[in-house]
């Protein structure tokens, strides 16, 4: 993350101030009629935008001339979102998109710009975007209609306030939510490279089924299945608490692929760790009860849910298995997350693989783990070295580009065929 003390010097108190954010997002399914949802759910005061636009990103903070399109809310250019609330825009017609199949916009990014009036208050955001977005300086006002990015002096690797992009599409479109923690969010993926496992799966789905499928990502780094968590931390509320808003609140949702549980077991958050976000290490039985609760709630809404086996964290933070104590002494959260976490992980995976507990299984563990006993249960060596911060050691928890690619290739796409 760039140093946000420059664009947001008062982030912990009054938040953003009279400035414009240009968020870069990649639609999974295109169309010429869209709408946006903004969130102030973690805010402590009303949030007002003077102006909001959608444009086609050209590169960096620049957009393609002629594509800047105003967004309205209740037919007004300005919108005020009360603290604790979300807000949908009106439908927006994009004159420069011919159809979902328009070859000129496949894989392109949207630049969604919004100017904050006065102070935003506490900001709602998604930390680990692994995507560069752009921010003007405090007090610079409305730059939502700028085609050039000059006013956007600052960058961020997070998405602020914007949470959802909808498109009008055929009612038989399959909509999949990738739900979970950092391994779904994309930690250690390639920056701006869209090589999360869900992006790999998206490519396969669109190859096979054309534009009759959409996959979106509702994962958060550090997220947990069950409570207690500190709900206003950057890792978000527990899955059981955010399911209704983040997953069941998705338009047209038909399927969920869920990979989560390692943070509940304590990986990186053991007894010696700072208990700011995750104060308790959970038992596998309690986590499984959380799985069952979420599965039942999704089923009540007619949504199918595929359980993903939890990938290895056996060597995480363990000096005996390679953790770099010289360069990262302070990140050593526990003496050893190995055996205890591994025992819990195996119990979770046995439950996930047992027929009847989910609508199907995605075996990410089998796709990434080295079957050689000499590997001690770690991921395959070729999946370990960090592919984003190439000068840093790996963490025995997050796969690299090759590992995420293997995960995306491991998903059986047959259940997601449009009717």
């Amino acid at each position: 993350q760039p140093d946000l003390a420059f664009p947001f010097p008062n982030a912990n108190t009054s938040g953003a101030n009279d400035q414009t954010i240009r968020s870069i997002v990649k639609p999974d399914l295109w169309g010429n009629t869209m709408r946006l949802r903004f969130s102030n759910v973690f805010g402590n005061q009303a949030l007002t935008f003077d102006s909001t636009t959608i444009a086609l990103q050209e590169y960096a903070g620049n957009v393609v001339h002629g594509t800047v399109t105003p967004v309205t809310f209740g037919r007004s250019l300005s919108v005020t979102i009360p603290a604790g609330q979300e807000m949908w825009s009106d439908p927006v017609r994009l004159a420069w998109v011919r159809s979902a199949d328009d070859p000129l916009i496949q894989g392109r990014n949207l630049a969604i710009s919004y100017s904050i009036r006065g102070d935003s208050g506490h900001m709602t955001y998604h930390s680990g975007a692994n995507t560069t977005s752009y921010i003007t300086g405090p007090g610079t006002g409305d730059h939502t209609n700028d085609a050039d990015g000059f006013a956007y002096e600052y960058t961020t690797s997070s998405w602020f306030f914007l949470t959802t992009l909808d498109v009008m599409a055929s009612t038989d479109t399959v909509v999949i939510c990738a739900f979970g923690d950092s391994i779904t969010d994309g930690t250690h993926t390639t920056f701006n490279g869209n090589d999360r496992w869900a992006n790999v799966l998206s490519r396969r789905l669109h190859d096979a089924y054309g534009n009759k499928v959409s996959i979106v990502n509702e994962a958060i780094g550090g997220n947990r299945v069950i409570n207690p968590v500190v709900a206003n931390a950057a890792s978000g509320p527990a899955a059981v608490d955010r399911l209704d808003r983040d997953v069941l609140g998705l338009s047209g949702l038909t399927d969920v692929i869920w990979l989560e549980g390692i943070n509940d077991l304590g990986a990186g958050y053991g007894a010696a760790a700072n208990p700011v976000e995750n104060p308790v290490v959970h038992t596998p039985q309690a986590i499984i009860a959380g799985y069952q609760d979420v599965v039942a709630r999704l089923h009540r809404h007619g949504v199918k849910v595929y359980g993903a086996t939890v990938v290895s964290a056996l060597g995480l933070n363990n000096p005996a298995q390679g953790w770099d104590l010289i360069h990262f002494p302070s990140f050593l959260a526990t003496v050893d997350n190995g055996a205890a976490v591994e025992a819990g992980r195996l119990i979770l995976n046995q439950f996930i693989r047992t027929p009847g507990n989910f609508d199907g299984v995605v075996d990410f563990d089998a796709a990434t783990r080295d079957p050689d006993p000499a590997a001690l249960g770690n991921m395959k060596a070729k999946y370990l070295p960090n592919s984003q911060f190439t000068q840093l050691p790996w963490d025995y928890l997050h796969p690299n580009h090759a590992g995420y690619n293997a995960m995306g290739l491991a998903v059986d796409i047959a259940p997601f065929a449009p009717a």
């Binding site: 955001y125 998604h126 047209g252």
Partner: peptide, 21 residues
């Protein structure tokens, strides 16, 4: 017939100021 379909999404959480190590 058409309806709204999620095309991009991310999960909201609370902001904290990143402190470089």
């Amino acid at each position: 017939p058409q309806h709204w379909v999620a095309s991009w999404a991310t999960s909201p959480a609370a902001y904290f100021v990143y402190v470089a190590p």
